[in-house]
Design a protein around this nucleic acid. Structure first.
Lengths: 224, 224
DNA sequence: GTCTATATTGCGATAGAC
DNA sequence: GTCTATCGCAATATAGAC
């Protein structure tokens, strides 16, 4: 099963033709959507002819699929790490949100055009729909866990999963693509907004935020 | 200016051919998106031939535009009412969210395909982009007001506007169209989630919810 | 690995009969 | 108000030379 434990998308050389196709396509998908972007548009942005695209990707949808894998795969991986850790549920959730938002802000491609129901509904994206469902299940596990442990007030977990998804998604939509001015506070702001709404003991938020802040720094070191 | 004070979309007879075009198109836009839906698809769903559509709407984009007007216009109107009322900021916000969510759940057409950046970016939807911006300004005014009055903790208002939008939008995405099983708790849940995150004095949430519950009932009477 | 040329399909919209 | 017929165009993808 794709997007299962330990699965990782293969690394991309962003300066290669393949990498530049992915970058340009991601920007166009974000601006005009999957259906609004033609293979001619992508080819023009990469400064090659349209049929040359098909040497690097078997079809237009393979470009899109690759971008979803690059964005979703690491996100699922990170959440698995949070679930395996020995920490409070609120910490897990807070850190997971902050990590996801930061990843969105620093990754080289533009993920804003990737999570469109109308596109993902196509037959060829069945695996990606599964991956997204898996990610949502992970979130629900954290929310249910926190609820049963008495850390969170009792909202319906499927509702909270969606609400959190909305906050993540809108944070994604906000910024004008990865190259734009990065809002450094956004990861913590987004995490605060969701967790504050859930916490029974709101006073503990400051402490949880400091844990996240420290660990965000650590995780950054680990990558470099 | 369109979407200005007092503006209202003209009433629709949902059993007329024009109304059935709007209903069918809204469902298809929600399932496959604006670009993924052809005028032939819409015509087939209404059981007329494709060129007959153009007797009722000058172009495909006029169908889409009409749907956005029907959804957005009343929403802006309601928010103007909230802003004009003598009530606490938290009450305004709580009631506004609850009203919007309920409206989504009861209106006959499917609004899930309407707020796609890639579609609204088209030249022909400039007025609709303005209307959406106006709605967002209204929300920011409530958040800033509540912040300055000391009712809300100090989140950046542009961030909160987006977060709230995300919650609204995801609540919209959740339900399988207006005809599906309505979740009666959703309006209050969504309002609670956002307002709880903002409130300085969380204990007042129960009271605010009761005010909203009562007024939701009143407003329902007023419509019938 | 990139190119030119082209096959094939589906799109939005119009013309004009009934 | 709906129909049949059709125009003009842009889409994805393939074939085959270089």
């Amino acid at each position: 099963m794709k997007y299962g434990p330990g699965w990782e998308p293969r690394a991309v050389d962003w300066s290669s033709t393949r990498g530049r196709i992915l970058l340009s396509a991601s920007v166009l998908f974000a601006q005009r959507g999957y259906f609004g972007t033609s293979t001619r548009d992508i080819a023009e942005a990469v400064a090659i002819r349209q049929p040359s695209l098909f040497h690097h990707f078997q079809a237009k949808h393979e470009i899109f699929r690759t971008l979803v894998e690059l964005d979703l795969g690491p996100s699922i991986d990170r959440m698995n790490q949070r679930l395996a850790e020995d920490s409070r549920w609120a910490e897990k959730l807070h850190l997971a949100i902050a990590c996801d938002v930061r990843e969105i802000l620093v990754q080289p491609f533009d993920a804003r055009g990737l999570y469109q129901d109308a596109v993902l509904a196509l037959d060829e994206f069945a695996a990606e729909r599964e991956g997204i469902a898996l990610f949502h299940d992970q979130i629900e596990r954290v929310i249910d866990g926190g609820c049963q442990a008495g850390e969170f007030v009792s909202f319906e977990s499927s509702f909270v999963q969606r609400a959190m998804n909305g906050v993540l998604f809108e944070t994604l939509r906000e910024q004008g693509g990865p190259s734009s001015s990065v809002r450094h506070e956004r990861p913590l702001q987004a995490a605060d907004f969701v967790v504050r709404s859930l916490l029974v003991d709101q006073a503990s938020l400051t402490e949880i935020r400091e844990v996240t802040r420290a660990r965000l720094g650590d995780l950054e070191m680990a990558v470099t």
